[in-house]
Amino acid sequence: MTALLIALAAAGGAAARFLVDSLVSGRLGRWPWGTLCVNLSGSLALGLLVGLTLEGVVSPTDRLVVGTGFLGAYTTFSTWMYDCVRLTEQGAWGRAWFNALGSLMLGVLAAALGLWTAGQW
């Protein structure tokens, strides 16, 4: 049953990723803003989810379904890496490095902020 719930949550996460990425990229253009927005919001949400689980607010099973299913499908490591490769192929080495390192640092900060926020409740 848990596997089915994870699969259903993943379907929702993939659809949400498509919608958010499309909305953001359509408005902001060439830079991979959509991927960045998805990954940062997913990192924040996962930090919050883990924190709420540690606080006993969210059950471990719910954390598994939402974290692995929805957020696992919502966030996108492969697209982030593809965006970095695409930028280097375009000769935009500085932007590629900024995308790689900036996304990594901001993602860790977003997850930490989510975890900290959960601890404040």
Rank of each mutant, 00 (worst) to 15 (best):
A3E: 06
L4N: 07
L4P: 09
I6T: 02
A9V: 00
A11D: 03
G13L: 00
G13S: 00
A16M: 03
A16C: 09
R17N: 04
F18Q: 14
F18R: 15
L19D: 08
V20F: 11
V20E: 13
D21Q: 14
S22P: 11
L23Y: 02
S25H: 13
S25D: 13
S25F: 10
R27Q: 11
L28Q: 09
R30P: 07
P32G: 03
W33N: 06
G34L: 05
G34K: 03
G34A: 09
T35E: 04
C37A: 15
V38A: 04
V38N: 03
L40W: 12
L40R: 11
L44T: 07
L44G: 03
L46V: 14
L46N: 02
L46D: 02
G47S: 05
L48K: 04
L48A: 08
L48P: 06
L49I: 07
G51S: 04
E55S: 12
G56V: 01
V57E: 05
S59G: 11
P60L: 06
T61V: 15
D62E: 11
R63D: 01
V65W: 00
V66M: 12
G67K: 08
T68L: 05
T68A: 10
T68S: 07
F70Q: 01
L71E: 08
S78L: 11
S78C: 07
T79S: 11
R86T: 13
R86L: 08
R86F: 06
T88N: 06
E89H: 13
E89Y: 11
G91V: 07
A92V: 03
G94M: 03
A96T: 07
W97S: 13
F98R: 14
F98L: 15
N99Y: 06
A100R: 05
A100F: 14
A100K: 01
A100S: 09
A100H: 04
L101G: 12
G102A: 09
M105R: 14
M105G: 15
L109E: 03
A112D: 06
L113Q: 04
L113H: 04
G114C: 07
G114K: 10
G119M: 12
G119I: 09
Q120E: 13
W121Y: 12
